[in-house]
Amino acid sequence: MAKVPVQFTLNGSEKAEFVESSTTLLHALRDKIGDTSPKGGCHQGTCGACSVIIDGELRLSCLTLAETCGGADIRTTAGLAESGVLHPLQRAFLDAFATQCGFCTPGMIMAAKVLLDRTPNPSREDVVEALSGNICRCTGYEPIIQAVLAAARANSQNAA
């Protein structure tokens, strides 16, 4: 099958791949580039486990064709920690016991990051709305909501 070249930055690094025109960004990231932090839970855009950030927008990588990502700035949970120091969201998820099986966690953190980037001091309702596209089947939603609120508080204290 014919392949097309695609070039983008992933967590700040230049990446170039040849992909089939039907290849999803999820497949390209996981199986070609080797970033397995986005997870495939449903491959139909309902579970949110594959969530990544493309040019600042939260996107479902299972419904995004890789070839449409040329020149994009793509961010995943694998690239969130800097020099081994956890991002405040990662630290908050740890401290709040906001992970159980962990499969939804990278997607949850991406959704939470887009929220906090835009709304540094979100209300509880803002958090619930922002995470509404991400399913946690272990049903640990409350600790996840608390983690996002705690990360927001930590950010605003650092900024002050």
């Binding site: 932090s37 995943t76 969201l89 998820f93 016991f97 992970t99 962990g102």
Partner: peptide, 20 residues
């Protein structure tokens, strides 16, 4: 602290499908 949480929050936990 849970032993597996650091892997979960950094996306490093290796699930079976992460093997290629």
């Amino acid at each position: 602290p849970r032993l597996d949480s650091p892997g979960h929050v950094t996306g490093k936990t290796a699930y079976f499908a992460d093997r290629n």
